[in-house]
Simulated assay, not measured.
Amino acid sequence: MIGAHVIVGYTGDAGGRDALALGSAITRVTGGELTVAAVYPPGSPGQAVEAQANLAHAAGELGAQPAEYIAFESRGAGRGLAVVASRIKADLIVAGSAEGGQHGRIAIGSTADHLLHLSPEAVMLAPSGYLPPEEPSRLTLAYVHRPQCDEAVERVAQAALRLGVPLRLITLDLRTEDPGRLRDDLALAVRLAWESTGIEAETEVAEGFDVAAAMANLEWPPGDLLVCASSEDAQPHRVFLGEVAMKALRAASCPVTVLPRGFS
């Protein structure tokens, strides 16, 4: 299960605080290690000092919760977080939304965009203004019938079992698919979850004329977490989010985790 070692990309803005709150909550649930990283560009002494100040502020926010703090020089924040994650063997990178986005939704800035297309580790994004609950309430996996999603069913079912929360499998019907086939695919995924963990997953087919409308037809209670598998276009052991999944991420009102291809 992801969350054994979480790295948070921290910035001194609302998105950074959202990411810190989410990463902190994840490690409290999983018992994993927490690393807070502030990335600054090369040749910028002033921003290096600012990065250290941001880390001090993050330490104050976390209080007694143990964490490691790293200031890292890189030409891009997303690239820097990916490099640090690999070096410290983190299995989850948490980032916040870009400034100016809609409250309660995920706004993708340059950092998140890089991570969603090249990260070697799972990526979790926090909606703007997100306040994590004490405990997770459910794991929801966006499912389509392909190998990456079948692998994700087993992994997410195992995570749900360890966390003691329900597992929901969702498929979006954009009025272009055969609803019967979609439900048959979900039935196979339910069987896969049951055979691998003994969990009986709930399923929903969300209808809509577009992805946002379909997502709006689903309930997202506090503590829900949406998980997406990477696209078939992803390099092995890399994150790459496809077009439909990207639209679902933008429409989600809960944190979203994207698993790299070949996640284990």
Score class of each variant (00 low, 15 high):
D185R: 09
H57Y: 06
S231N: 08
Y69M: 14
P42T: 01
K247H: 11
G76C: 13
G198E: 07
P166K: 10
A187K: 15
A142W: 07
S74T: 15
A152K: 07
E232V: 13
L174Q: 01
V8N: 05
H5D: 03
G101R: 04
P45E: 05
E232T: 14
R238F: 03
I199P: 03
M246P: 03
L55A: 04
A37C: 14
A193F: 02
D18E: 02
A122W: 05
K89L: 10
L141P: 06
A157D: 03
M246G: 09
A95G: 06
E61C: 10
L141W: 14
I106T: 00
D224R: 14
S230F: 11
T11V: 14
F263P: 08
P221N: 12
A4V: 01
A77C: 14
L226K: 13
Q158G: 13
T140N: 14
G208F: 04
A234K: 04
E33S: 00
A67I: 03
L115V: 10
H5Q: 05
Q52S: 06
D178H: 00
A214R: 08
S86H: 03
G32W: 04
I88E: 02
Q148G: 13
R162K: 13
V94R: 01
R87K: 10
L118Q: 08
A67W: 04
P120A: 05
D113P: 01
A213Y: 13
S24W: 00
V256W: 08
S119Y: 02
R250S: 05
A19N: 00
L174K: 14
T11A: 10
V205I: 15
G23I: 00
L62R: 12
C149T: 14
G104D: 00
V39F: 00
A25W: 05
L20A: 02
L225W: 12
Q47N: 11
Q47P: 06
E243Y: 00
H103K: 13
A25G: 06
H145M: 13
V36N: 09
P132H: 12
V165W: 02
R181C: 08
A21M: 00
T35Q: 06
L161E: 06
M246L: 14
A160Y: 15
A67L: 00
R162G: 08
Y130W: 10
E68C: 10
R191I: 02
P127K: 03
V153A: 13
N54Q: 15
R191M: 07
A64K: 12
V239S: 07
S230H: 07
I93L: 11
A212Y: 09
V227H: 11
Q65M: 10
A157G: 09
Q65Y: 07
A95N: 04
P221A: 01
E154K: 09
R75K: 12
Q235E: 05
K247V: 08
A48R: 01
P132R: 11
G12T: 02
L241V: 09
L20N: 01
V8K: 04
L172Q: 05
T27N: 01
R181D: 09
P41A: 10
R183H: 08
A206R: 15
L169F: 04
A59R: 09
G78A: 13
A252H: 11
T257I: 12
A98Q: 09
R238K: 13
S253F: 11
L167M: 06
S230R: 09
